[in-house]
Design a protein around this nucleic acid. Structure first.
Lengths: 340, 340
DNA sequence: CCAGTTATACTATGTTTGAGTATAAGGAGG
DNA sequence: CCTCCTTATACTCAAACATAGTATAACTGG
């Protein structure tokens, strides 16, 4: 680009690229789904829909929407920025090393998008293959709906070995505490929201295959003895699994105080259907009548007047989301004790 | 990349810069403070400490810390990413216009940092002058500790004129609703967290001077009749006021369910002092004994054993934050009714 | 018509919050 | 040294909300 060889380059001698990637979530039946770009080549892991920020994109969000449109055919509705990742991990050597050791730093802006039920409307272009995946495919330890997931026993075993392998006493205590908080042991309860914390701990400990990627030392550490432990939980391209973990954590937090689930529901639905959707996202089982009361007392839904037979039991009244409720309505209790 | 004349350029013909800016918060006495870069030239508004991402910066956060260190002499502790702004508003004409109409897009990553009480340790270098400012200087309508701020009456009046000036019926209803939610009118209560929503509404309506900046039409719209209304609330450089609004909103949300206030407190403090700090941030008065009960019941503090006389009343026991409490500990009530 | 499944109503018991009152312990001014 | 002002701390009581149920209703499939 004109003048000197590095003109207009922010990072002298380097180039700066911005990746936009989207975690597009839907709920089908009882399963939380995420849209993934899948390659037929078995060696290539799934990726999130993503692309580079281009100059014709007016805003970051517009750029994201246009990439998703191109890659999946989907037009996004609800979109929310998640986080901007820019670690040195993401500084990768340029493809043409001959060009004076150019480093290309990648800044990656992650987004969360919510769409209504996964229909067949996803495009299958010649080169790109977008598929809906159960998100627990990538995070099997996050689904507690059927009780404690079996894989956790193995992970916890490996984590205990890591704790035991600490060089000093103090270091050991710190490791112990981190595991205890992230995975809810002893007096601390499992928290559905600590998805990112858990993933990052597993990454750091080396219990997740991408931790040994591109670093030469591809041998797993001694505490990851059982080979199974590190192969469960499917890997993703680049740091997309981390972005997905961020998205799950954010969404799990948000459903507790904002009525965002309705972005994922069809126009009319049954109570239990709504409950199953929330359970799918949170990875937890909820108490039926109390959940019902919660939703009713907040005035989030109204009856459509219709009834759904064919559920295999007593027919249910169909509900719709009350449009009058602002999407980002805060909870009644402000958590701070206000004066007068 | 490479090959063509636009080698390594993400944005063909353009260059991409990343700005890092920090909202550095402290509480002194009863005032919420933010660190601002102040120019002696009266025509230049305050700015947030900020700088460009450089290639030697390993991570975005490291870049931020190094800029803050350089500009203010402060070494940051608690830091949290806020948001990445990348609107076309921020695409500004390059300094060397001769160079084939180069546009330089600015991406701006905002951070929130919390530091202990504003001490004199802020550096005064030759060129840069960092000062602690009461954050309500920039957002006078956000401080309800002394009752409804006087300026709000004027803003609401102007907003009513804007609503009335709507071309159609439906548009009018929409404007009415937005104002009602953002500013807490009718049946909706004022929410301390809707800082950004309020600022963006004022911006859109043109009640804030920066809305008419660089656009030629520097004349305020008819509904901003009273000139005073649009001059209150001090302006900041670029979109820094928006970044600050984002930071205040985030912090006000966070203090309700995470014990982050303690990042702003001295090593030991009185109960009322803690309450005043929270009140300063939230811009609201709190109920004394209920606040005390809340803090005590969560086990956030412990007595140091010492006592502080000299408060003008009965001497108070001094407290300290209980280190055992994890900083990002979630609240007990999960807001979802769990099963079994 | 019986078992299984889903829907919906209702209830008893506890915990948390909102809004106080009451009392304690200092300083300053007269 | 008594009174008023300020701050601190303890305690109370009712209303609101949450937890963990039970009970009953209404369908389907075999």
């Amino acid at each position: 680009m004109s003048t000197s060889s590095h003109s207009n380059a922010t990072l002298a001698g380097d180039s700066l690229n911005v990746d936009l990637s989207a975690v597009i979530v839907a709920v089908t039946g009882d399963e939380p789904k995420v849209l993934a770009i899948h390659s037929d080549d078995p060696g290539i892991p799934d990726a999130l829909p993503s692309g580079r920020l281009e100059s014709q994109h007016r805003t970051l969000e517009a750029g994201l929407r246009s990439w998703v449109q191109r890659q999946t055919g989907l037009t996004l509705g609800y979109v929310e920025q998640l986080y901007t990742f820019g670690d040195s991990n993401r500084i990768v050597a340029g493809t043409h090393a001959a060009e004076e050791h150019v480093l290309s730093r990648i800044l990656s802006v992650g987004y969360l998008a919510l769409v209504r039920e996964a229909r067949a409307e996803v495009m299958k272009s010649v080169t790109i293959d977008a598929v809906w995946r159960d998100w627990y495919r990538y995070f099997p330890w996050e689904d507690w709906r059927g009780g404690k997931p079996a894989i956790l026993a193995r992970l916890e075993q490996a984590l205990r070995r890591w704790v035991a392998a600490a060089p000093q006493r103090e270091e050991k205590r710190l490791r112990e505490e981190r595991v205890r908080i992230a995975f809810g042991q002893r007096d601390i309860a499992w928290s559905d929201e600590r998805v990112l914390e858990r993933y990052e701990l597993l990454y750091e400990v080396g219990l997740v295959p991408e931790a040994h990627r591109g670093l030469g030392d591809s041998a797993p550490p001694p505490w990851a003895a059982a080979r199974d432990a590190i192969t469960e939980g499917e890997i993703m391209m680049a740091d997309h699994r981390r972005v997905l973990a961020t998205a799950i954590a954010r969404l799990r937090g948000k459903i507790k105080y904002r009525p965002v689930v309705f972005e994922l529901m069809p126009p009319s639905f049954r109570f239990l259907q709504l409950q199953r959707a929330v359970e799918a996202l949170a990875g937890l089982r909820l108490h039926k009548s109390n959940f019902r009361r919660l939703v009713e007392s907040q005035g989030l839904v109204e009856e459509t007047g219709e009834v759904d037979a064919g559920t295999g039991g007593r027919p249910a009244r169909l509900l719709r989301f009350r449009r009058e409720v602002r999407l980002d309505r805060p909870v009644p209790g402000s958590r701070l004790p206000l004066a007068r």
